[in-house]
């Protein structure tokens, strides 16, 4: 289903292009004279996001998915590579030139408790983007806030209340209303439902799906929960240690995963199934430190497949290549 949708998308509908995007953080070197070392959070990520689609990003903690989301909309300075948003190269835009673009790029944060200012009323929080962008009169702003609250399933009579008076799910709705205020083109959703209970989670997911249909949003949906990502995405990018190791339509990622890491990730989900064999650990060991990436394939230290040709996996970084139409994987042995 999603594959067909992918094929029909032409160049003109591309909203965002990333080319070899890289974000490294300098850390103090362990010993004097050994030179600088870096936390390599995002490594050579190239992908495109099409207008109106949802691109899911999954990976375990420390895989660089949050950093990718933030660099992409220039909340962080990229270390290398190129970002093209809506036909413009914004890689080196300064704050002044970014300001008008912020209208088009918004973000929803994970924690609805720390991402809302506790001393502002909900109405002021939602109206704040208008203040920054100098839009509308006071009366118009009030009207807009009312509309946004209704759209996000909040009763407008709560406009003067403070965040602490709301539950987690409602706060997340406030965060969504604030991000929607400027009718952005691209919305980065950074684990928007991870802090919520299952029954509230489904309310927020449905809201995001409805808003996308209504406003024509494009989402980058970051989550560690594969089931949630599968549900909401058209395509999914799987990240490991800062690299995108697989990128494909959601069905391909889920049912025909080509990268051994994706396969392990999917088999690790505890399922409500009683006839299938019990859950077994798929991978041994932990994520290597992103400071000292193994040479060669980042996954080689834990990969069950690397035994086949250890020397190649440990020496040569596999490139993300198309193994079947629309299905990309970064493994020497994929496809």
């Amino acid at each position: 289903m999603s594959e067909n949708r992918d094929k029909n998308v032409s160049e003109a509908e591309t909203l965002l292009v990333l080319e070899n995007l890289r974000k490294w953080y300098a850390v103090k070197s362990a010993r004097f004279g050994t030179g600088r070392s870096y936390v390599k959070a995002v490594n050579d990520v190239s992908l495109t996001i099409r207008r109106g689609e949802t691109l899911g990003v999954v990976g375990e903690s420390g895989c660089g998915k949050t950093t990718l989301g933030r660099v992409m909309i220039r909340l962080l300075e990229p270390t290398g590579g190129r970002i093209e948003f809506d036909g413009r190269d914004i890689t080196h835009y300064d704050e002044k030139r970014l300001r008008p673009l912020r209208k088009d790029m918004q973000i929803i944060f994970q924690d609805p408790y720390s991402s809302l200012d506790p001393r502002m009323t909900v109405g002021d929080i939602i109206a704040e983007p208008f203040v920054f962008q100098n839009l509308y009169t006071q009366a118009e702003r009030r009207e807009k806030v009312r509309e946004l609250m209704e759209m996000c399933g909040l009763d407008p009579i709560y406009v003067r209340r403070y965040p602490h008076e709301f539950s987690g799910g409602q706060r997340q709705r406030v965060g969504i209303a604030r991000s929607l205020a400027l009718t952005p083109k691209l919305m980065v959703c950074d684990e928007p439902v991870s802090a919520l209970d299952v029954s509230i989670q489904s309310q927020i997911i449905n809201l995001l799906v409805d808003l996308q249909a209504k406003v024509g949003l494009t989402y980058l949906f970051i989550s560690h929960n594969l089931n949630v990502v599968y549900h909401i995405s058209n395509r999914i990018a799987v990240m490991y240690l800062g690299y995108v190791v697989e990128l494909a339509g959601r069905e391909d990622v889920y049912f025909h995963a080509a990268h051994p890491y994706t396969q392990a990730l999917i088999k690790s989900i505890p399922k409500i199934e009683f006839d299938a064999p019990p859950l077994r650990a798929q991978l041994k060991g932990d994520l290597p430190s992103p400071v000292n990436l193994p040479p060669g394939c980042p996954f080689s230290s834990r990969c069950p497949r690397a035994r086949r040709d250890r020397r190649r996996c440990e020496a040569e970084i596999p490139l993300l290549r198309e193994i079947s139409p629309g299905h990309h994987a970064a493994c020497h042995f994929a496809g």
Binding site: S167, Q170, S199, I200, S202, Q203, I205, V209, N227, V228
Partner: peptide, 20 residues
């Protein structure tokens, strides 16, 4: 029913209205 399940492929999730 409100858990996103891969097998069923529903477009909308079942929702428990209200909160705890």
């Amino acid at each position: 029913e409100s858990m996103p399940a891969v097998e069923s492929g529903r477009e909308r999730l079942h929702v428990i209205e209200g909160m705890v």
